[in-house]
C-alpha cells in the first residue's frame, strides 16, 4: 500500500506546476471586481475604458509564459492563441492597439504599480502591496 501512495506522491510532484493567477490593477483603479466578460474584453483590447471613462492600459507576459497561459485558461477561459489573434486583428486593421508586453513578473508588478489605469496579472502567492487585486467572477 505504501509503495502505491509513494508512487502517487511522486507522480503528483512530477506534474507541471500550475500557477493560480490573480488579476492586478494600478491603485488608481476604482473597481474591486470585474466580470469574466469584462476582463476578457479588456485583455483582448476591445474594452478600452474603465467604468469612470479613464483608459485601460493592459500589460501582458509573453505568449508562452506559464502565467500567461494561466491567465487565459483559468481566469478568462480562452486559449492564448485566441488573444494573440484578437490583438493582431486590431493592430493591423487600425481598429485598436496592442497591449504592452513585459518580460517578467517583477516587471509586470513595477509597470502596473507605476501606470494609472493599468491592468495585469501575477501569481496568486505573490501578494504585492504596490498593486490592487481585482476579483474576476
Amino acid at each position: 500500500m505504501r509503495w502505491l501512495l509513494r508512487t502517487f506522491f511522486l507522480l503528483f510532484l512530477s506534474l507541471p506546476v500550475v500557477h493560480a493567477v490573480e488579476v492586478i490593477a494600478n491603485g488608481s483603479v476604482a473597481e474591486r471586481q470585474v466580470t469574466v466578460s469584462t476582463a476578457r474584453a479588456m485583455f483582448a483590447m476591445r474594452q478600452t475604458q474603465w467604468a469612470d471613462g479613464s483608459p485601460v492600459r493592459v500589460f501582458i507576459l509573453p505568449d508562452h509564459h506559464p502565467l500567461h497561459s494561466g491567465l487565459c485558461k483559468e481566469v478568462l477561459s480562452i486559449y492564448p492563441y485566441q488573444l494573440r489573434q484578437s490583438w493582431d486583428r486590431l493592430v493591423y486593421s487600425g481598429t485598436g492597439q496592442a497591449p504592452v508586453e513585459v518580460a517578467t513578473e517583477e516587471e509586470m508588478i513595477a509597470r502596473v504599480a507605476a501606470t494609472p489605469g493599468a491592468i495585469g496579472y501575477i501569481r496568486k502567492v505573490n501578494n504585492n502591496e504596490s498593486v490592487r487585486t481585482i476579483t474576476v467572477r
Binding site: 478600452t48 471613462g53 483608459p55 485601460v56 493592430v91 487600425g94 485598436g96 492597439q97
Partner: peptide, 11 residues
C-alpha cells in the same frame, strides 16, 4: 502603421 490614442475616446 502608426496609431495614436490621445485619450480613451479617440483613435
Amino acid at each position: 502603421n502608426l496609431s495614436w490614442r490621445p485619450n480613451a475616446d479617440w483613435l
